[in-house]
């Protein structure tokens, strides 16, 4: 398990990184936390000729408020989700998801930008970003742009990032006191990829749910919004009937594949159980 040889460039600015990547052509890869990329290289599943290390680009660090948005730098480590006060206050769903992401030492190194850019459909943060209706800021040879989360995750490990583009930050709408969040997953062991997981962000007026966003992970090729289920709930109170209707609607929202050890029907069943429990939390939070 030794990576194929590559050359290495440490970038100190976004522009340097973009240039270095461009010089590497199709065979360049950015490396941030590397917690998924390094094993892929060791297994020679990927063999870029050039690695562009973005860990030392100051612009990619830090969390700050920008108007109605929280800008979370791409290099924000998973462990910072648990300690950064701005995230606790303005993006609590990210904080709620963080303890489920792998293990402490992985969280010390793994980054939000890396997780979102990799778009592993079994990962927590892409689904959370989707539930938050965040926007992904990317830099490329043609300049900067912001992509809505729902447009970002295209297919299995495929995103709206064009070749050479670099994820710079994730912008999250500020959490407000009228919102409620819930997050949980069903993983065989602590830190494992979940059999199914879900993050919810709901806006409430008393016990009426005015708006709800439900995002699942480990249910298909991409993190998935459960829009039918959402529509069963929006405008209602979380009565047992409404929850049951939302659970039933998941049959149309989700189309998991048969895994060799987790049949599709079981995954759907687990998604329904999980949704029921999380909606119970949302409803019980009054």
């Amino acid at each position: 398990m030794k990576a194929r040889a590559f050359s290495y460039f440490r970038a100190s600015t976004v522009e340097e990184a973009l240039d270095a990547h461009a010089q590497g052509g199709d065979d360049a890869r950015y490396i941030a936390g590397g917690q998924s990329l390094v094993p892929a290289l060791a297994l020679r599943l990927q063999a870029p000729r050039r690695l562009v290390d973005i860990n030392h680009i100051d612009e990619l660090r830090g969390v700050r408020r920008e108007g109605e948005w929280l800008r979370i730098g791409a290099l924000t480590r998973h462990c910072e989700m648990l300690t950064e006060p701005l995230i606790a206050e303005f993006a609590p769903l990210l904080r709620a998801a963080a303890p489920f992401v792998a293990h402490p030492a992985i969280r010390n190194r793994g980054t939000l930008g890396g997780s979102v850019a990799l778009a592993d459909p079994a990962s927590e943060f892409p689904a959370v970003v989707l539930a938050l209706e965040a926007e992904i800021e990317v830099a490329g040879p043609a300049g900067r742009r912001r992509v809505r989360a729902e447009d970002f995750f295209v297919d299995l490990f495929e995103t709206a990032l064009a070749p050479g583009e670099l994820l710079v930050a994730v912008h999250v709408p500020l959490f407000n006191p009228g919102q409620r969040i819930a997050f949980d997953e069903l993983a065989r062991r602590r830190g494992d990829y979940a059999l199914v997981g879900c993050g919810i962000s709901a806006t409430c007026a008393d016990d009426l749910i005015t708006d709800i966003r439900i995002a699942f992970f480990s249910v298909g090729n991409v993190p998935t919004r459960a829009r039918r289920a959402e529509s069963e709930i929006a405008g209602s109170r979380l009565s047992p009937d409404v929850i049951a209707a939302a659970q039933a609607a998941l049959g149309e929202d989700l189309a998991p594949d048969d895994g060799d050890d987790v049949p599709a029907a079981m995954r759907l069943h687990l998604a329904r159980v999980l949704l029921g429990r999380l909606l119970g939390q949302i409803g019980g939070a009054t």
Binding site: L186, L195, D261, A265, M266, L268, H269
Partner: peptide
């Protein structure tokens, strides 16, 4: 004894 086997035994899916 996996969750899949337990749920199968319980006819849950």
């Amino acid at each position: 004894i996996t969750p899949a086997r337990i749920l199968k035994a319980l006819n849950r899916y």
